[in-house]
Design a protein around this nucleic acid. Structure first.
Lengths: 234, 234
DNA sequence: CATCCTAACCGGACCACGGTCCAGTTTCAT
DNA sequence: ATGAAACTGGACCGTGGTCCGGTTAGGATG
């Protein structure tokens, strides 16, 4: 798979500060298993924490679970939770890890139209639909796992998705600013927006999927000519 | 101005819960002056708070200012801050109020190309450029004022911007799902994204503006034909 | 297999900050 | 002057996150 080189070539457009992450943070198909190389007790506690968190969230909703509750439900000190997962976001993210890995595997090396083999535009469409369905499925968790404003665009899964879109867009639109286009498309798939539209506005998921298709069509159909430059008032 | 009817007709797509807002929250050109009808002491404290907040923010950055610091800098109890502005976001938003009012006035009734009189697509372009410039100008404040995930899409200014885009898009693309398209375009103008691209990635603002133009072109140029429906794997 | 040594880990006391509450005070219309 | 609505301020609370002295796992060594 030539994705390794692609990743290292295209992933770091933002010089990342060298941090010792507490978790390998599901970086694009990281080390195979679930636990990298933790000490026995640490691994045990990690498992207990994830288990307790999942249980509590299923019971009280993702938003109504405190870190302390998770800690004590796992018979573990609060410090241990933060040592292992860094912060609240880290814990919630870890819970989404399985799903995220599956998804990445699907669009990186799975069967078409999501995976390689289909036309770029077709893959684009499939990607959005899959993202939307995933968002609808895991909505509360994805909402609660939303990182703070600073990290939001630097979090590994997001960057992988973005890079994937860049790759597909570049094939379909060699001359466009695909970097920015990819950000635009990602914006449409933002879980917070999906939540707003489906839950708060009652919009059916089908319309969101149709909207994605329309958006992809518009974006990938050629632009007839270059209009005059903008001279906007302020 | 037929904007009143437009607003009441198009603004509440989401049945808003009836809340007694602590502030008139700059709802699309609300009551003219700065203070609606507060008691004398309340108005005085409000002014003192805004002043103190502005001072502290200029000094320590928007992120490094605590509510308690603002309160004591204004010689006021912490409770007063929250009574007046609801929460942190409310205070920061109030600081952006002037700018927001000016901006709304500009695109609602100002001169073209931002205001009425120009072609919809032209106004669209101008709107994005103005938003981007505003975002760059007030970046830290706008970042700090970012509402929580639940409110993010219900906050009045955002809804006004969205409605404006819907209006313009509808004129340019009568048959499109302009509601969703507007959300997409708004996503591009998201201050958090702007911050990421300019500050964290070092992307020049000019490229962002060019990208907006390109995006508008792509979105508003007709789609040649309706492709087959998506059948995405999961 | 017993011992030892060190790095890693543990837990809960601790802190900061956003937000709430309510008894007391002030304004202002009458 | 007076009553009531509105405002005030600081004590209080819950939660996310930090810190550090004590503990433990588990490889190395004899």
């Amino acid at each position: 798979m030539l994705y390794a080189e692609f990743m290292s070539a295209v992933l770091p457009p933002c010089p990342e500060s060298e941090e010792s992450l507490t978790e390998p943070e599901l970086l694009h198909l990281g080390p195979a298993g679930d636990e990298p190389c933790l000490r026995a007790d640490a691994a045990r506690n990690r498992a207990r924490l994830l288990d307790a968190a999942a249980r509590l969230i299923a019971e009280h909703g993702a938003a109504g679970v405190t870190m302390e509750a998770v800690a004590s439900a796992a018979n573990v000190g609060k410090g241990t939770v933060f040592r292992r997962f860094g912060d609240r976001t880290g814990l919630l993210t870890a819970l989404l890890d399985h799903s995220e890995r599956n998804f990445q595997a699907a669009f990186l090396s799975g069967p078409p139209p999501l995976g390689p083999g289909a036309e770029p535009v077709e893959r684009l469409r499939a990607f959005g639909v899959a993202m939307l369905r995933r968002a609808v499925d895991e909505l509360d968790l994805q909402l609660a796992a939303e990182p703070g404003p600073d990290r939001r665009y630097s979090v590994p899964p997001r960057r992988v998705h973005h890079s994937h879109l860049v790759l597909l867009l570049r094939q379909a639109l060699p001359d466009a600013d695909v970097e920015l286009l990819a950000h635009t498309l990602m914006g449409y798939l933002n879980p917070v927006l999906v939540h707003h539209l489906t839950r708060q506005c009652g919009m059916p998921a089908a319309r969101l999927e149709a909207g994605w298709g329309e958006l992809v069509d518009r974006v990938t159909s050629g632009v007839p000519s270059v209009p005059p430059p903008v001279t906007a008032a302020r």
